[in-house]
Design a protein around this nucleic acid. Structure first.
Lengths: 357, 357
DNA sequence: GTGAAAGCGCTAACAT
DNA sequence: ATGTTAGCGCTTTCAC
């Protein structure tokens, strides 16, 4: 049985059925302009009877705006981004915008292609968690043409006047480090993805927004220590790839070779998981042998015993904020918008404890 | 500094710059029809110089297809769906389709509105994880009009000839139950969201696709037991809301009041988390006191000790399959498509062990 | 091989 | 208040 594939009923069909011109039908259906109440009746009735559905494509053609925003993120399957996207979608939907999401896996070429595609779809604006690098021509081109853009989570060195919505990475990390310091810890090891030279970061006084999130978090750690007159020991900085297994390996190595570490701090969700696995491997009794503090609310941190103290990010709100910020920019292109850095929250559980000596 | 908002360069601009008609420009740019190599050169050069970007909206208007598919799911922030969506997006992208995702939170009204919106956007097809209920007028209307639709994860009683892509819920559950039976367990408690009467399910011989996933899983459990000549005991069926805390409460209650349970099986990710928390609360030593088996690969099941045996769903592949299935349907609307039920896999870890008596 | 012209569905002047 | 007309950017006959 061949599927009907009946063509969509258009505004013309409605107009004819209602016995009016298509402009009148349009006015009634769009609720703009004036129409007699009799016209109103007839058109509404005809539209309903025929099952008329407005064609958003045609509308977009005319108006030049598609009521769609494009999002470019590394990976939707990452729980952080999926919750962010839920917040972003909800906020966008509320404001009457649809969302198209594209994943880059942090690959520049894919990012370029994604931007081109979203551009072709004539999205009204873009939220981009850019692949961190010096200068993206693709983004610059869009920006020059006047496409509203908001950076998310990180900006990259080439941000120009584009606002960024992100966690306040630096202070989130201070929060974590301060908590451990408050408990009396001074030998706090940090697991980080940042490859920066420690010296350069220690003296960093520029805009933190120009650094990668991981570096910003490392700066926060250094700053918290410095504020108490402690100079971070190179031995306490554990570098690992953004990979659970590698983090586990690096942490295990360091813990086996450095005796006086009393606290361990993982600076993102993946590294935190890896570090925790190392603790299990080594049979470390936390918080007695070692206080442990992780990043990002992950379900497992509430399921293990003792449960794990973490720095929580307001994921949903980050997404929602990015959406409202972009929509603000779409509606008022002239207005200058400031960066928005949302604060993290410390969720204290049972893995961190007062240092007893 | 006022933003330029330079208007997009159109095919006409390119044509003029290249000194040809817009039809020729179109032919070259779209790579259809014939054009002299000199025209080719000139147009390509002009397009590049002007930074021409085709307008997908206009294309869609003409062609009637937007190369976009709409997806309706309960909640993108749910790790199951976010990974599914990653698979779906990747597969769709590969085939040249963009994806628009909408969340319903399992609310029928929101679902109806979401469908209307996607319809207005003139998506080429829809993947729907429907709110389970008897008959959705909104879906029927779309289907009658010939919109290609694929159900995902569940279908609902009103599926008609619409294919469904889902896990093979029933056999997934048999797999789990059989594993426990193989280990010698017979008093296997099951945590389920299904509210069905046990008798009716025990004798159910209809199309499992007509049941909710939770019921299908309960049927699988019953079938596995029946195959070994065991009649499921009503006392072993722990009903809980789709809520971690409630599951924890119900499991705690039952475990405290029923002495001879030797294995516990959670039938979805949320209920499994709750059940596990109850075990922790009660101080149950698994797998010695009790074998524990969960559903869905969640990170925590690998982070706790002993680690937890689970039934894993091929999330990414489920999503990718839904996409290819829908695209198949879009390209060949006449073809009848069968349901696709992907098999689950048992991931055996340390929480299940041979029953010693 | 190339151009002129029509039209996808809709809205917005502009007339009436 | 309502109809006429033009046009958004593109593709596609149809002549030439």
């Amino acid at each position: 049985m061949a599927r009907p594939t009946r063509p969509q009923v258009t505004i013309i069909d409605v107009a004819i059925a209602a016995g009016v011109s298509k402009s009148t039908a349009s006015r009634v259906l769009a609720g703009r302009g004036s129409a007699s109440s009799s016209a109103h009746q007839k058109v509404s009735a005809a539209a309903k009877k025929l099952g008329y559905t407005p064609n958003a494509l045609a509308k977009a053609m005319k108006s030049g705006s598609s009521n769609t925003i494009g999002v470019v993120i590394p990976d939707l399957a990452n729980p952080f981004f999926s919750t962010v996207m839920r917040g972003l979608s909800d906020a966008a939907r509320t404001a009457g915008f649809e969302v198209i999401i594209t994943n880059t896996d942090n690959d520049v070429d894919i990012e370029v292609r994604a931007l081109a595609l979203l551009d072709e779809k004539r999205v009204d604006g873009l939220v981009i968690a850019p692949v961190f690098q010096t200068g993206s021509e693709a983004i610059d081109t869009l920006r020059e043409r006047g496409t509203p853009i908001v950076f998310f989570d990180r900006s990259g060195p080439s941000r120009n006047s584009t606002p960024v919505v992100s966690l306040d990475h630096l202070n989130a990390s201070r929060l974590a480090t301060d908590h451990l310091l408050d408990l009396g810890h001074e030998r706090i090891a940090i697991v980080t993805e940042a490859g920066n030279d420690l010296e350069s970061l220690r003296e960093y006084r520029g805009d933190p927004g120009l650094l990668r999130p991981s570096s910003q978090r490392l700066v926060g750690y250094l700053a918290a220590l410095a504020a108490r007159g402690i100079t971070a020991d190179r031995e306490l900085v554990i570098h690992a790839e953004y990979d659970r297994a590698d983090a586990a390996r690096q942490v295990r190595d360091r813990l086996e070779n450095t005796r006086d570490i009393t606290a361990l701090y993982g600076t993102d969700s993946v590294l935190t998981s890896g570090a925790f696995l190392a603790l299990l491997d080594l049979g470390v009794k936390y918080p007695d042998d070692l206080s442990f503090l992780g990043f990002d609310d992950q379900e497992w941190s509430t399921m293990v015993r003792p449960s794990v103290t973490v720095v929580s990010q307001p994921r949903y709100r980050l997404g929602a904020t990015a959406a409202t910020c972009l929509i603000e920019r779409i509606r008022h292109p002239e207005a200058e918008l400031d960066d928005i850095r949302l604060p993290a929250k410390l969720t204290i559980r049972d893995s961190t404890a007062q240092l007893v000596r």
